[in-house]
Design a protein around this nucleic acid. Sequence first.
DNA 1: TCATCATATAAGAATATGCTTATATACGCA
DNA 2: TGCGTATATAAGCATATTCTTATATGATGA
Lengths: 115, 115
Amino acid sequence: MIETVTIDIQRASQLLKLLGDPTRLTMMRLLKTHECCVCEFVEIFNMSQPAISQHLRKLKDIKVVKEERRGQWIFFSINKSHEDYPFIQSILEQLPEQNESIARLEAQGLRVCCK
Amino acid sequence: MIETVTIDIQRASQLLKLLGDPTRLTMMRLLKTHECCVCEFVEIFNMSQPAISQHLRKLKDIKVVKEERRGQWIFFSINKSHEDYPFIQSILEQLPEQNESIARLEAQGLRVCCK
DNA sequence: TCATCATATAAGAATATGCTTATATACGCA
DNA sequence: TGCGTATATAAGCATATTCTTATATGATGA
């Protein structure tokens, strides 16, 4: 008998609500394959630093991302230990890669990081 | 070579935003296995008829559900022809069944429909 | 045709969301 | 120690969301 993993509907709707924003969803898709810091997101989304910071805070609040300071930068990554990581992952893997964003950053010399 | 189905990030975030509400998400999970009419939802969610109607309208607007009038009732069901149905389905199938809601309705004699 | 039931729509109010600008904090380096 | 860079937080504002109440529409059946 196969046990299908399920997620409580309240928690699921909370997660979907957070992912239901193009900026945050793209962030999550990017973080699926790349660690990024705030200033990189600022470039990628062409959005103000506080706006980016506030989006990241929401993702941090429900612990779907984690942060790690390295020198003056804070790198974000997906929290693979999150109870609902399989659910999140199943969504993200259906989204197209966002490699152009990263490539553009690198072309501009703005990747890894924030010179 | 396996072609993974992907969905545009803008469309995905729009869908996730709509599913990111506990009422609408539960509706969709219910509709996955049962056709329902408005008055049934009113009972299930213990919510006003206009509130239910407005939630359904949002789901209808992006065509993830369809409606069919039968007599005085309008039955809703999931639109399996929707371009993004696989995406939606992949989310819904991770959610627990909502059979208790239906069972409760039937116990009250309020199912199929609205006597 | 009229009354009733199921549903939709409109308008308004309370709250939530997502920016903005200004400022605070934390680190690295001279 | 003091300055510059990276990031966070606070306050305010515009807009979006989700109810509410009131009313309109559409079908049924006497």
